[in-house]
Amino acid sequence: MSRYLLDKFLYTVDRDPDLVERYREDPAGTVAWWERERAGQLLNCLVSERTTWLAFTDEERDALVRQDHVALFQLGAHPFLTLTLFIAMFERDHGPLEYQKAYGRAMQHLSLPYPDIAT
């Protein structure tokens, strides 16, 4: 499991409006493309250095494709990263603060100790 890679996906997709829309409309295609093309790039670096060892586990990939913020949190993804990305993708489908409240309700069943989200 790579908390780093999950957070990197959420962070980089959230910062690109075109990727936000792509992930909203085609999660499986976006996850596969991002893992193949972007996972190995250094974060916030324009140099063409790459690594080849980073990959999602099947469980991580599945949670990303399903856009399941609860499963992502349970896998160690930072909740602020999922919240900001998912607000960008889904808030428009709901009234004021409805999505944020639903996000919180979906996580109510979780109890301490939470997954480690230290940065």
Rank of each mutant, 00 (worst) to 15 (best):
A77W: 04
P113L: 10
F73M: 12
F73E: 01
K8S: 05
W34F: 07
F9T: 01
D68S: 10
G29L: 00
P113T: 14
G40W: 03
I117H: 15
C45V: 11
M1R: 04
D93S: 14
D116E: 00
Q41M: 10
V47T: 12
S111Q: 13
Y4P: 08
E59K: 04
L5T: 00
S111P: 09
P96Q: 01
G29R: 08
R36Y: 07
E21H: 08
T30D: 09
L46H: 08
A63W: 02
F90E: 09
D93C: 10
W34C: 00
R92D: 02
K8G: 04
N44M: 08
R92F: 13
C45N: 14
I87G: 07
T57K: 09
D18C: 10
D14H: 09
W34M: 00
E59G: 04
P27F: 02
F56M: 05
A77P: 00
L97E: 12
Y4W: 11
F86E: 15
P27I: 00
L112W: 05
R22M: 04
L83K: 15
L112H: 04
R36D: 04
V20R: 02
D58I: 08
Y4T: 07
T51E: 08
H69I: 03
E60K: 10
A102H: 08
G104I: 11
D62T: 11
G104H: 14
A71N: 11
Q41K: 13
S2F: 04
D93Q: 12
D26M: 12
Y23A: 06
L10F: 00
P96A: 07
E49Q: 15
F80H: 08
G40C: 04
R15C: 08
E37P: 10
R24Y: 15
Y99H: 09
L54Y: 03
L64F: 09
A55P: 07
G40D: 07
Q108H: 13
E21G: 11
A118R: 13
N44S: 09
Q67T: 10
A118Y: 14
A88C: 07
E91L: 12
T84R: 14
A77I: 03
N44T: 09
E37I: 04
E91S: 11
Y103L: 08
L42E: 13
P17D: 05
M107V: 06
D58C: 06
S48V: 11
Q41G: 07
T82M: 03
Q41T: 14
A102S: 15
L83I: 11
L72I: 11
Q108A: 13
R38T: 05
C45I: 09
L81P: 05
R66C: 05
T57N: 07
Q108E: 13
M107N: 01
A77Q: 01
M1D: 02
T52K: 13
Y99D: 01
H109G: 15
V13A: 08
A32L: 03
T30H: 13
R105V: 07
L43C: 03
K101H: 12
Y103M: 09
R61T: 01
E98G: 01
Y11C: 08
V65M: 12
G76T: 02
E25M: 10
D68K: 13
R61V: 02
D18E: 14
L75R: 05
A32T: 01
